[in-house]
Design a protein around this nucleic acid. Sequence first.
DNA 1: TTACAATAGTGTGCGACATACACTATAATA
DNA 2: TATTATAGTGTATGTCGCACACTATTGTAA
Lengths: 120, 120
Amino acid sequence: MSDAHEHIDKLMQELRRGTITIGVLSQLSEPQYGYSLVTMLGKKGVQVEPGTLYPLLRRLEKQGLLDSKWDTNESRPRKYYLLSETGKEVFNLLVAEWRSIVTSLENLIENEGGEKDGAD
Amino acid sequence: MSDAHEHIDKLMQELRRGTITIGVLSQLSEPQYGYSLVTMLGKKGVQVEPGTLYPLLRRLEKQGLLDSKWDTNESRPRKYYLLSETGKEVFNLLVAEWRSIVTSLENLIENEGGEKDGAD
DNA sequence: TTACAATAGTGTGCGACATACACTATAATA
DNA sequence: TATTATAGTGTATGTCGCACACTATTGTAA
């Protein structure tokens, strides 16, 4: 019963996949830079490695979902990211899709453990 | 606003990732074969390609989450899959993790659009 | 017999994520 | 001044699941 624990990690990771994107997008209604995002998301229960987040941010920017601008006024230059108009739309669509997935999955999970009707 | 629709597909696909596994596991408290799973999941709103499901089933079997046996009594031989004991445990853990993710994400999403407290 | 549906299988490619590492610049300290 | 710690950004690489497209086989209907 314990040799499976090695696979669980992988499976959970797969479960998290894609949700990081939603998490990040959800925080970018206001400009933030990479490090602050890592910190903030971490506080909210979503652990993200910097090495995961930075490529993600650049990906999202390249796809046009994020805008970015360097702030060189502060002591260290920081790259601030912000949701673009497109990003806002995509985020909303993504949330809708997410909720739909949650609903379907909940149905499947709930049904398990109970009786099922043999209707075909 | 339309060139983003190409990315949305990818993002949604990423969102679905991993959930297919949970969906499949949830249906295997009783033995079923690949084709019937494709049909059944499809009816319940979870579209899965056969070319996606079959490798998944074998993967899960190789990981010890599923048991399988060929039924050659019927007209065409069918490979029936069933949750193993390990599989049941993993499924439960996975469901727990899933619910946790759902909760975190809901929090992040809800917070957006409203005011945020500057509490640190 | 041919054609199609049912059923299972495989191989390849893509892409996101994790991990690890490198780099810069500021601040602190010896 | 030199060194170290740390905040902050960036990149290279590997893994692995999933989608897609393909093949193979068998049974049944035309």
